[in-house]
Design a protein around this nucleic acid. Structure first.
Lengths: 231, 231
DNA sequence: GTCTATACGACGATAGAC
DNA sequence: GTCTATCGTCGTATAGAC
């Protein structure tokens, strides 16, 4: 309970770049961090309900009882993973959405970064995005609020683009949902051994989305590069 | 085991239109059908592993033991749901993909029908698309083959469009995956009480996808109607 | 074909020694 | 803070009467 309260989300703000998978780099005692990492792997592989606390503990090289020194329940592990993951999602979208001036550049940056995170950290992202309904009622409500913020950020960019006459979108709310949905689903199908790198998928998707919203000067996106060209 | 072998997938080929949710209309004895329906609901609500056989049986108005008269294991229920659902997916894509001449019309029809099914039958679709990895090894392999066929159908349409000069797609394989992914994810977020009908979402998505692939004469799709206008 | 009763294992979580 | 041992519960699946 004590150790689980990870306030480290402000550090390492350089976004997902490089390392295997430590968005958890600074979780309180080392044992708590190892348990969290083990839980992420197990939940991603088998799902929350199919994962046993014995499995998590043994992956972390500990006895079944050791888990309960650092976390009150199995669900609390999921909650920590989910909370930190969603906070990171919101931050990625916020920062990318503010990193440029024109709506097209902002949208491209947001999609690029969001997709990249879902591919690069697909193990974490899978748990964050697809194990939501295993959360306790109160925790679920908290997470849903974070998800609504992500939705609003994206909708804001689309609205700005429409207002500026840069995008042509008949249904802003529905399109924002579709874009988010497209990005999130990357976590479901992405595999590490595949032919495309997270960067390539981010670039491909940024192009697809810009065309979806009718951004001009985007008849067929280049396969890589072109940092923020679009409007 | 006997009753579970539903060969009725050839009937009712008019695709998902109307009724609450009986893609299962003709499963052998009535009790087996009720159990299947109960399993779909329970799996969609809580997930496969969180659902107990007691829960399924009681939803069907039966004792816990009754389930095993009609199905050997809980996993066999999931397998039947998954198999029938994936067969239907392939058929929807095949028929819609053959229902028109130009690649743009074919793509629009495929997306429209596929999305509509995922929204209309979102309970079934949720199980079909998101409980895959709870399947036994052999069943999983069979289902993956069906999924590959869906992928190939969509990729075929995109290739035809590129060959005909109607689409501009830098990465056909990646884009086919993205389109499929976009449609599938509808099952995750769709709720029955929402503001949009399955038809409206299908229409919206068909427009978004046509723009994604650079189909000409699609600067901003109309919100509804326009059966197969696009190229 | 459906029931009641139950075998048997595994799971989440705790107790208490070290 | 970590261990071994264990409690109580509930899960899937079966046995046998009706």
């Amino acid at each position: 309970m004590d150790a689980a309260d990870t306030e480290n989300t402000t550090e390492n703000a350089a976004d997902g770049t490089g390392e295997p998978d430590d968005s958890w780099g600074e979780v309180a005692p080392d044992a708590a961090r190892r348990l969290l990492l083990a839980a992420v792997e197990a939940f991603a592989e088998r799902g929350f309900h199919a994962t046993t606390t014995r499995d998590i503990a043994s992956r972390a090289g500990m006895s079944p009882a050791a888990l309960y020194i650092h976390y009150r329940t199995k669900e609390e592990l999921l909650y920590q993973i989910s909370r930190v993951g969603h906070e990171r999602s919101v931050r990625i979208l916020t920062e990318a959405g503010n990193s440029a001036v024109t709506p097209a550049d902002r949208l491209a940056a947001a999609v690029r970064a969001f997709v990249r995170w879902h591919a690069e950290r697909h193990t974490t992202a899978r748990v964050v995005q697809y194990e939501l309904n295993a959360l306790a009622e109160e925790h679920y409500a908290e997470i849903v609020a974070l998800r609504r913020r992500s939705e609003e950020i994206l909708r804001g960019i689309l609205q700005d683009g429409v207002a500026a006459g840069d995008f042509t979108v008949p249904d802003v709310r529905g399109t924002a949902l579709a874009v988010l949905s497209l990005c999130i689903d990357v976590a479901r199908w992405f595999r590490s051994g595949g032919t495309r790198t997270p960067e390539e998928i981010g670039e491909l998707y940024a192009g697809l989305v810009l065309r979806m919203v009718g951004a001009p000067a985007f008849p067929a996106g280049e396969t890589a590069g072109g940092e923020g060209r679009g409007a």
